[in-house]
Amino acid sequence: MIHDNVILSYTVDLQNEQIVIHTRDQSSLKEVDIVLKEVSCHHFEHQLKGSIVLAMTVSNISSFIAGNIEILQNGKNHGWPTAYETLDELEQKLTESGYKYFNLYSSYGMNGWIVAKDLEVVKKGEEE
C-alpha cells in the first residue's frame, strides 16, 4: 500500500509521541499517511523532495540495538532514547514496554528508522 509512494512531508510530534509520514500513491494520486504511534526515538537521513518509499519493515529491538551501537553510545549521556546503564538494560526496557523497530527504506531519497509501539497506514478520506 506504500511501495513507490512519494514522501510529501513528515511531522514529528514529540508531545504526543507520534510521527506521521505524509505520502502520495503515484498510481491513484491519493494521499496516504504512515502513522507511527508511541514513538521512543527515530533517525532519518537523505530527506529530499521526491523521495520514494521502497518499503517499511518491522524488526525486533535486538536488531535496533545491534545496528545502532554508535548512535546509542553518543546519545546515552543525553538520556536518549531513555535513561539506561547498559545496552542489555536498554534492550530489556524497550522490549518489555512493547516497542518495535520500524525501518523505512527508499528507492530514492529519505530513509531511516523509528522505534515505536505501533504503525498504521491511513488512506486520506478513509479515516474513521
Rank of each mutant, 00 (worst) to 15 (best):
H3S: 14
H3G: 02
D4W: 08
D4I: 10
V6L: 10
V6S: 09
I7N: 02
L8D: 07
S9N: 15
Y10K: 12
T11M: 11
D13Y: 08
Q15V: 13
Q18D: 01
I19G: 01
V20F: 03
H22T: 10
T23H: 03
R24M: 15
Q26P: 09
S28K: 04
K30F: 07
K30Q: 10
E31N: 11
V32S: 01
V32G: 00
D33K: 13
I34Y: 00
V35D: 01
K37T: 08
K37C: 03
E38V: 03
V39K: 00
V39T: 04
S40V: 06
S40H: 01
C41F: 03
C41V: 11
C41G: 02
H42T: 05
F44W: 13
Q47W: 12
L48M: 10
I52Y: 00
L54P: 00
A55G: 08
M56C: 15
T57Q: 06
N60V: 13
F64L: 05
F64E: 01
F64W: 06
A66T: 09
A66V: 04
E70Y: 12
I71E: 07
N74Q: 14
H78A: 14
H78W: 11
H78I: 03
H78F: 15
G79R: 06
T82C: 15
L87M: 13
D88P: 01
E89D: 12
E89F: 06
L90G: 02
E91R: 06
E91L: 09
K93F: 09
K93A: 04
E96R: 14
E96C: 11
S97G: 07
S97F: 04
Y99H: 14
Y99N: 07
K100L: 15
F102V: 07
I114G: 01
I114K: 01
I114H: 02
V115K: 00
L119H: 02
E120P: 04
K123I: 15
K123P: 08
G125W: 06
E126Y: 10
